[in-house]
Computed example of a mutant assay.
Amino acid sequence: MQTREMAVLMRDALLLPQGRVEVRVVDPGHLRMVADVFKGKYALAFATIRPRGSPPCYPTATQCDIIDFNQLEDDSLSIVLEGRQRVNILSAAQAKDKLWMARTLPCRNWQEEPIKGEFELISAALEQFYEVNPDLFELYSQVHLEDAAWVSQRWLEVLPMYNKDKLVLVNQPDCHKTLDFVLQLIKSHVD
């Protein structure tokens, strides 16, 4: 596997492969970064902010594409990102314009697998979650409620947990621990 240089956009959120997130970009440096990504100068990675450390993000990130953008009324830019490939940040440095550039190495995405048995409850609960959160649902042209990996990753993106705890689950070789965790969480709220 080859390393690759990427610009790093850090937020207090999690984005995983096939997930989508809308981000507001205000800072001139970040606006220039968006332009450079569109020009193909480098790829973009979305990373979760870490309270202390350098770089100020966790080493697990997701290479992403900008799939949509809109200028907002206050002249800031809203961009919609879609996660593509999980990556590990091997090293990072902050440029003069305060942007972070990182040397990354791709890691294996979770494999698609059918959701079945008692885990279908997780899929149904995610569908209900999207019904009451239409702004999130609208980001997706299609949902994959039949895919255990897709459903697990969407739950990790939206669950109100500490990011460091989410990343323990993200760094598992497959979605099974996340499925178990979310199922127990749902069952504990049903009982």
Results as ranks from 00 to 15, higher is better:
Q184G: 08
S188L: 05
F181Q: 13
E118R: 04
I122H: 01
N163T: 14
Q94M: 15
S123D: 06
H176D: 02
S152T: 05
V170P: 01
R154T: 01
E120W: 02
D165F: 13
Q128E: 13
Y162N: 05
D147Y: 09
D191V: 15
Y162P: 07
E113D: 13
M101L: 15
C107H: 15
E157C: 09
E127I: 06
Q111S: 03
S141A: 02
E112H: 14
H176W: 13
L136V: 09
A102T: 05
N88V: 08
D97W: 02
L167D: 00
I186S: 04
A93T: 10
D135V: 05
W110Q: 01
L185M: 15
Q94N: 14
A95W: 15
L185T: 13
A92E: 15
F137C: 01
R154N: 01
L90C: 02
V151F: 11
V87E: 04
A124T: 09
A148R: 15
L121A: 01
R154F: 08
E138I: 04
D174P: 00
S152N: 10
L136H: 13
Q172G: 05
M101N: 09
L185V: 10
D135W: 11
A92K: 07
M101R: 15
Q142S: 11
L136C: 09
L136N: 11
I122M: 06
D97T: 04
V132I: 08
I115A: 00
L126I: 09
L139P: 00
S91M: 07
A125N: 02
L90Q: 12
L126Y: 14
L183H: 06
N163C: 12
Y130D: 06
N171V: 14
P160K: 07
E113N: 12
E157D: 05
E112N: 15
L156W: 00
W150T: 03
I186R: 04
A124F: 08
K116S: 06
P134M: 12
P114V: 15
K98P: 00
E113C: 08
Q142D: 12
W155L: 11
H144G: 08
K166D: 01
S188A: 06
R154V: 01
I186V: 11
A125V: 02
L183F: 09
D191E: 15
M101T: 12
L136M: 13
D180T: 03
Y140C: 00
A93K: 10
Y140N: 00
L126W: 12
M161E: 00
F119W: 02
N171C: 12
D191A: 11
Q172M: 10
A93L: 10
L145F: 15
E120C: 05
K116V: 08
V87M: 14
L90A: 03
L99Q: 10
P160E: 01
R154W: 14
R108A: 12
V168A: 13
H176E: 03
V168T: 13
P160L: 03
Q94Y: 11
K187L: 05
S188P: 15
K166H: 02
Y140K: 02
L105A: 03
A92I: 12
P134L: 13
K98H: 08
V158H: 14
H189E: 06
F137Y: 14
